[in-house]
Amino acid sequence: MDDILSKIELMRGLIATIKKADTAYFRDDRPIMSDRDYDVAVDLLKNLEQKTGVVLSDSPTQKVPGEILESLTEVRHTRPMLSAGKTKSIDDLLRFAEGRDVVLSWKMDGLTLVLRYGGGQLQQAITRGREGIIGEDVTHTVRTFLNVPLTVPTKESFEVRGEGVISWENFKIINAGLEEPYTHPRNLAAGSVRKLDSAESKKRLLEFKAFDLVTEFPFATKTEQLDFLSEKQSLCRQKRGGYR
């Protein structure tokens, strides 16, 4: 585990170096490294991606195209995405627990999504949609999220539920540049995920916060399930940056 994490950190450093070199070469017309050194960095990044089975979503080896759709395709969920009950009462929580150990988490305010993985790759991303039965395919925009793994070192097929969100920090900066500002990050996140132009969505610095593993893996407790999700996402988590 530690060895993989160290390789991920090295990949992040290589990505930052390559991006900086690209900007200097293509935008500023002032190269900061030789073609040979650039090729060595890219080859090393590719090699690490192959060894770890991990590809970060901003990797220069996986340039996400600015895909533009005419409309969003409807997709049926494998399991209904029912709305969870909510409360602000501690007494309600105690009654629910009934003396058992339970897991509590903050409720993220964004757009609920399902990510489908198979063969170690992100295959599809779907919104909650109508009554949690029919969602919309938003794979083209979710691939531009800051922290969604495009590949994972797990070949089994599985589905993850989570929230597509924008941090308050990024929300304030992005909102300041919009002609028609949004009142809340949730609204901006929801509108950004459902954009037909993935290049525009990419500018919104969206993130995915996983909270549930839909597929039935042999986990005895919710904690084990969350540990599994945390491991998969921590391997591919990128450093959060400001609006650029």
Rank of each mutant, 00 (worst) to 15 (best):
R186N: 04
E207F: 08
V165Y: 01
A190S: 13
K203T: 05
R204A: 12
V42H: 13
L150D: 07
R130Q: 00
M108C: 02
V42I: 15
I4D: 11
M11Y: 11
T221W: 06
E207D: 06
K51W: 08
I133K: 07
L196W: 10
A21V: 09
R240G: 12
S71Y: 14
F171D: 06
Y38H: 05
Q50T: 09
Q233W: 11
V102W: 01
Q123Y: 05
E159S: 03
M11S: 04
E224R: 00
H184V: 03
G241F: 02
E70C: 05
L111M: 07
P149V: 04
Q121I: 09
E70H: 13
S34F: 07
Q233A: 07
G99V: 05
D109S: 09
T17E: 14
V42N: 10
S83K: 05
R244T: 13
L146Y: 05
R27H: 02
L69S: 11
D2Q: 12
E67I: 15
E74V: 11
S167C: 10
K222I: 01
I18T: 02
S89F: 15
R100K: 12
T52G: 13
P31K: 04
E216W: 11
L56E: 10
F96R: 03
M108D: 02
E216V: 13
L111K: 05
A220Q: 06
V102Y: 09
V142A: 12
K209F: 01
E49Q: 11
T221S: 08
Q233P: 04
P60E: 10
V54I: 12
G241E: 08
Q50N: 14
S157M: 14
Q121Y: 08
K51N: 12
